[in-house]
Design a protein around this nucleic acid. Structure first.
Lengths: 120, 120
DNA sequence: CACAGACATCGATCTCTGTCAATATAGATG
DNA sequence: CATCTATATTGACAGAGATCGATGTCTGTG
């Protein structure tokens, strides 16, 4: 009973909402987007995203990530879950290892929403 | 005694940090950026930013904003303070009214940080 | 000066979230 | 099967944050 809010597929995010500067976001639109931003809005998760997104091959396994932080393994696992639940990373289990990959389309959609100039 | 963390001037943000996909963010860089994302990562503040950024003239006074929400005036004032402290909006008092304006360079820098493709 | 309106600040409350230790699960290996 | 290793889940707790009512500050007006 943790996830009651619908999660946007990356493709939906782009279609869902106009850029901030284009027209006012509705309450419903804001409720859909805020969770993705909230997932990014933590120093540890920002670094995790950056580590994953910049990792050779575009993906990183948890074992590549834990060493970069002074945090316990369950905490890293928790942050990865938040990123995954928000749709910002995909998860792929191969053998004993779990690989996370950045969803670049989701990042691009978010960036467009925040940074696009008004079209009028 | 509320703000102990340094706040980035918009121009500094662009210079401070590589895009997520370019190379891993340092802990310090992540601590600088997270507050701006955190400021955006709330449905009410997202709508406020959108209302301000899309308002004719690029600015809006508080009296233009409060009516859009089912929230008390101090709550709106609180959210505007968060946006202002994070550097996402500027504040300009003219007579009795206070006008908020979106800092589009800050938004653009954030968007570039999140959405820029890796350069390698 | 007195008053009214626009906005900010304060203090309290309630909820949410980041972290940990402990434990569970699942795959590899002997 | 027993064991080891990689990762996830659970439960508890402290700190952060969202909201409100009450109140303060500033500005224009009579």
């Amino acid at each position: 009973m943790s996830k009651s809010l619908p999660v946007l597929a990356p493709a939906e995010l782009a279609a869902c909402c106009p850029p901030l500067r284009a027209e006012p976001l509705s309450a419903g639109q804001a409720e859909l987007i805020a969770p993705m931003l909230k997932a990014l809005a933590d120093p540890v998760r920002l670094r995790l995203m950056s580590l994953i997104a910049s990792h050779p091959g575009g993906e990183a396994c948890v074992c590549d990530l834990t060493g970069a932080f002074d945090l316990r393994q369950p905490t890293i696992s928790h942050h990865l879950k938040v990123l995954h639940d928000s749709g910002l990373v995909s998860r792929d289990k191969r053998g004993v290892w779990v690989y996370y990959r950045a969803r670049t389309e989701a990042l691009a959609s978010l960036a467009a929403l925040i940074g696009s100039p008004a079209d009028h």
